[in-house]
Design a protein around this nucleic acid. Structure first.
Lengths: 357, 357
DNA sequence: GGATAAACCGTAAACGTTTACGGCCAAAAT
DNA sequence: ATTTTGGCCGTAAACGTTTACGGTTTATCC
């Protein structure tokens, strides 16, 4: 069954067909009996207009439903009231989460967001994307750069408007300010939790080292172990997918290298691991403790419910928006990175002293 | 540790400080030794310009990195090369999936997308959002309206530019064309699969009836049952969350009303159900068969891997973009709804005749 | 060889704003 | 009574394009 074809135009604002054209500043001026200059002044609430006329103009504006034409404004001021977001196309948890949060806080601050995502190879795709964003009139750009190749392309690119990058653990350059959640801390939290549970043989089933997130989570795991005087355990680097984690779990079982505890780089990784273990009779958390990272929806209903680390995307978005808007207005803003929190559930248990002699 | 404050301006295009201003059509004209009119013609590849000068102009454009000022173009043509997306703020699987897909195909078609999301109460938030999108200069708007209140607000609203809605199973009005994936078919597929497996007692643990998706999936389940001559089984309506599904599962167990098979309205719903069952010794799929809907990432690594229904967001986005762009250009486009597919894994098994006497 | 057409190109006006400047008028100061 | 001040407001120019129109050339035809 095909969708019905209905002839349709744009929805009309005025029920009468008369006033199709959008009202302009001149229409307002005429109806209020002032010049367009005065209208412009009240729009930008500039001084030099008496309260009486101001009220009158405001009233007319409301009556006829006047709205400022942003293209015209942008043309003459070359200022903008929208901000651009450049993202990679990946539908992964972190990037999507920050994207949504970013849109939300931008809206609350009165900015529209136009988003563009780029594909590999980034070296070729990011400069044009930045340009498009510029063309479209954004006042500043936030790029969500989870993978390091993308960040490299951003560093190399040029752009007229301020650019800020969200990239875990990457450092700022004079050109592009970089901001992120303190994921290394998150990884430490996860690992420390395992340590406090009495584990000493703590492996890391890592994410991709092509991602900042992968690198920095691994670094946190290492640091926590080092700080506790423990020798680093097994570390296998993957691609975030449950599938890879599943196969890795199988391999661990086959080679009888199952560690006491595992810090998984993401909840999806943990999921694959858990299935591999469950299907082969190794129990979580009785035989092996696992903690994940992300707190994806449903991770509290895994079998067992997953102990994991939650990032605060809203806070992250808020902070980075503030520094970007600051940069757009020529201010300098100083912000501390936001901190993730550990959420304890049932996938990690106290070490069983009897298990490993 | 606070983020370092680095004084920074916009990244500069020209290494020399001389040419900060963006080049205009006049600059190009001058360097190419033609008038700006000619440059405009080659930009819009209009006729009436010789190949020789065309090449020359093109070369200059490339050399000095000229890019058209969209604000100016929009101002005079009142046409636009960006499209607006209105979404609800919910980070749920369906809306986010279509959002990402929409952005991707828009980009490939040469449109930038500016997205705005709205919160409840929709009656108050959608008209302003539509207006903002209009102000910002979009040529058309696609609204992702999973919940019916939002769709109602859209129907009530007015807008100068064409509006298209993605809402499962809702029908078009003269003003707003509505398009969607055929989710009812998806639900039928899921239910039929259970029927073919020999089940006759098939319940539906539904989503929210405030959502089109919830309604239409339920309708598909009913229809499949009816077509097979089976009496409708138990139907419990929830809110998509694993938590609610978990508690519902517990209740089923407590009241000893566990059905032979369950069509769960979403994978997250299935997840909650599975945990409730697993923790109480009822085995999936041995004791109860479950099929989900969505094919979220990781559902192939649930315990057991979930049989579910996958939507084709990319096809959906492609189709709906084509009808929107058609409407923007005054054409009428006819499109068939896209069809979801069943993906069979291990959570539904053949009915066990011996179990229920 | 002149007229006509075709091909190419320049010019002016317009799009809806903002901004700098200047003018008018009442009130205050001289 | 004249000048000064300051509050309020109008005007013109500019932002970077597109589009309609008109003007040159050059080629084509009789």
């Amino acid at each position: 069954m095909a969708g019905a074809v209905i002839p349709r135009g744009a929805k009309d604002r005025s029920s009468s067909a008369s006033l199709r054209r959008k009202p302009t500043i001149n229409d307002v001026a005429q109806m209020a009996g002032v010049s367009f200059g005065t209208v412009s002044r009240v729009l930008n609430d500039a001084p030099d207009v008496s309260d009486a006329t101001r009220q009158r103009v405001l009233q007319v504006i409301k009556d006829i439903g006047y709205r400022r034409n942003r293209a015209a404004t942008a043309l003459v001021t070359s200022r903008s009231t929208s901000i651009g977001i450049l993202s990679d196309g990946s539908p992964r948890f972190g990037p999507v989460g920050t994207l949504m949060a970013l849109e939300s806080v931008a809206r609350k601050k009165g900015y529209a967001t136009t988003v563009i995502s780029v594909d590999q190879p980034y070296a070729e795709s990011v400069q044009p994307a930045l340009d498009t964003l510029d063309d479209v009139g954004v006042g500043g750009i936030i790029v969500i750069a989870p993978v390091v190749d993308m960040a490299a392309a951003v560093w190399k690119a040029s752009c007229r408007v301020p650019v800020e990058m969200i990239a875990a653990g990457a450092s700022s350059t004079p050109d592009v300010f970089t901001y992120s959640e303190n994921q290394e801390l998150g990884a430490r939290l996860a690992t420390q939790h395992l340590i406090e549970l009495g584990h000493t043989d703590i492996a890391h089933i890592a994410g991709s080292m092509d991602w900042f997130d992968g690198r920095v989570r691994k670094r946190g795991w290492e640091a926590a172990l080092r700080d506790a005087g423990l020798s680093p355990g097994l570390c296998l680097e993957g691609d975030w997918s449950p599938r890879w984690a599943f196969e890795t779990g199988l391999k661990l079982i086959r080679e009888k290298k199952i560690p006491q505890a595992i810090f998984a780089a993401s909840d999806h990784t943990a999921l694959g691991l858990i299935r591999a273990f469950a299907e082969n009779g190794v129990r979580v958390p009785d035989d092996v403790s696992i903690v994940g990272f992300d707190d994806i929806e449903g991770s509290d209903y895994f079998l067992p419910p997953l102990t994991t680390v939650r990032q605060d995307f809203t806070a992250l978005a808020l902070m980075s928006m503030e520094v970007l808007i600051g940069a757009m207005e020529g201010r300098e803003v100083d912000r501390a990175p936001t901190a993730p929190t550990l959420v304890v559930r049932n996938s990690a248990a106290r070490a069983n002293r009897l298990k490993k002699p």
